[in-house]
Write a protein that binds this DNA or RNA. Structure first.
Lengths: 211, 211
DNA sequence: TCGGTTCTCCATCATTTGTTGGAATCGATA
DNA sequence: TATCGATTCCAACAAATGATGGAGAACCGA
């Protein structure tokens, strides 16, 4: 029995899916409080009550957006893990940076949603679990910073978070950072990847040599 | 002739200053759209029209908060620059991380405001200049990554941004990250500082050796 | 074609929100 | 004390917003 969310994802032309998609982009751009149900309905080109018919409260729609995103991220991380398994650490990092950057630059709303969920305190929405802890643990294990997924030292987690945050920030902040760097979109992606590798790889490969 | 903002800062007990202060904390917590003028007034313990009497539109109050923050950051960066001038790069970085972390951990709303201004697209507020470009250029020069403040290569700017973002993120995301690391507040600060130094210093000191 | 289910829209409601007018109050000064 | 400006609050308004009830349209199997 497929869940509502799965059902919506199964048929991307279904009304449920179209609403979810528009909501994702708008919530990513303006945040939960900055988006009205009327804005979403208008974007989809439907009446507001059709939106309520499919998704119920605004809060529920927002939660579906976050849950959807979290699933997507988990799948992407699994994919990365499968790509780099058994490779040396420097290579693992390089691939991870490449793949995550490509993924996030293709979906600019994703990193925004993640950052907004960090800051998160909304008067209306009880904190929604992005399952960040799980994601970070997966990365830590994939990077070889920890062996046991259930017991990861604070330092290892903090280092993974630093990597994760760097990627998220550069993708979420492109509209602000790119004019500062005076480059076009493609160049921006290149500079970001280079910068991330430049900073992260030496730090972590040194760790491996002298833990 | 002191500006309204300067006047408010001069006497921190003045009504204008108290409103500005409450607004800063609330905007930092909930974002522009997530805060109502009534919330601010209630926090200060005044009637809503008193707020309008002193600050006019909600948008103007928000802009004052951002301008105020930007001034504060600029002063802090100048202070750091004066502390590290002439020191070797590794030491400059270490001091910068220490001082910026201390500053931001003392004012948790500051990093939130900065991040929210990154994502920034609000329906009501035209993008407000945090003067990030200026701040980043100052850091680049202070760190010795560029000699000429007016012409900083994209790579240097990107590297400074990476540092800046890392600090901002760890302070803004404490409420989310700290449970993941399973440490208390003091330990969190220590782990963050250590992690930042661990990651950033090797990267940048290597640069200095091989530009 | 019929009957029922699913879907979509129109009209509407109660509440929230930004904002303002005006009256009352306070403090200094003539 | 009378006066005047600065400050504060009460009351209210228009618009925006989250949410719903109900009427019709579209679809689908019998």
């Amino acid at each position: 029995m497929p869940s509502r969310l799965e059902k919506a994802r199964q048929d991307p032309d279904s009304m449920k899916a179209r609403i979810l998609d528009a909501a994702r982009r708008l919530f990513g751009e303006y945040g939960f409080s900055g988006v009205t149900t009327r804005m979403i309905a208008k974007t989809v080109g439907i009446d507001i009550s059709t939106l309520y018919y499919h998704w119920g409260e605004k809060k529920d729609l927002y939660e579906a957006v976050i849950t959807d995103l979290s699933d997507e991220i988990r799948a992407k991380l699994r994919h990365i893990e499968s790509l780099v398994r058994g490779q040396p650490l420097a290579h693992r990092l390089e691939v991870a940076i490449e793949v995550m950057c490509d993924y996030l630059f293709e979906r600019p709303e994703a990193s925004n949603l993640i950052l907004l969920a960090y800051l998160g305190k909304s008067r209306d929405v009880t904190e929604i679990d992005l399952r960040l802890k799980e994601h970070i643990a997966n990365i830590a294990v994939a990077m070889g910073l920890a062996l046991d997924r259930t017991n990861i030292p604070a330092r290892a987690n903090a280092r993974v978070l630093a990597v994760w945050n760097s990627v998220i920030n550069f993708t979420a902040g492109e509209h602000l950072f790119r004019p500062m760097l005076n480059v076009d979109h493609a160049e921006y992606i290149a500079v970001v990847k280079e910068t991330l590798k430049f900073i992260l790889i030496p730090a972590f490969t040194r760790t491996a040599a002298a833990p």
